[in-house]
Amino acid sequence: MSKLTFLFWNIQRKNLDTHIAQLCKLYDVDVLLLAEFGNNNAYGLESILKSVQDDYQYIKPFATTKVELFVRFEASKVKQVYDNPDMSIRKLCIIPTKEITMIGLHLPSKLYMTDNDQIIHQTNVANLINTEEQKIGHRNSLVIGDFNMHPFQMLSAGSFHATMDKNIALNKKRIVKKEEYYYFYNPMWNFLGDNNKSKVAGTYYKNMSGEYTNYHWNMFDQVLLRPDLLANFDENSLEIITSNGTISYIKNGKIDTNYSDHLPIKFTLNF
């Protein structure tokens, strides 16, 4: 059996090269996705990654991208398919029997967009993913990134249609008013709250103490999987990372923003 381990981290434009390399080694990461890469040097990070573990490649995007990609296999196995200012679609042709469509995204922040506009945006993105899947001809797709939304804001059939229940997702699609809408499974639902699934209740912490609604913990960084990938998904591998093995990214019960204001997430697909 072969495996593919994915790690996503919004690094808040900080230079966290050493931490990233340590995490890649610790978790044996094959596919590394970084949002808010800022002015960091991608080839510099590639060198550091190679010094820790062989074979990492930086996949230089054809156009602007929100999510930088590094892989631990030949670059020729990554096919760039689509980019827009929110997301990047790449085909991973690593497993001969199962091509994977990987969508890395970083949706606009709640700081710069109203809830209404976020709804518009989310629906656009979900529609585009659906369109590209139709062109590609299969739905072996996963979406990973900083959605800047909570799992409970991504349930609508018109948007990501991201259910919390694998068995519901395995129905593949649902018809609403004569239209077909495909499901995603969103395993991040399992991390809401403090019931031991993770050491923290989210991937981003913001105390809005002056507001009536204050989530404190936000589950903005997520992975969604189409039902066609669920048999490959190792659900126990999904983790909100709170340490690189020696340094904790949590301080006084909050995210230590000396590193990033977001925590990384990682998971594995088995084939």
Binding site: A63, Y82, D83, N84, P85, D86, D117, I120, H121, N124
Partner: peptide
């Protein structure tokens, strides 16, 4: 074999305008 989405435009077929444009992360 690659596509980049430059912008998208949402409009009402009855009136044409006003329209809403998504470009470079702005609406």
């Amino acid at each position: 074999g690659y596509t980049y989405q430059l912008m998208s435009v949402l409009y009402d077929v009855k009136e044409n305008y006003p329209i809403q444009i998504n470009f470079d992360n702005g609406i």
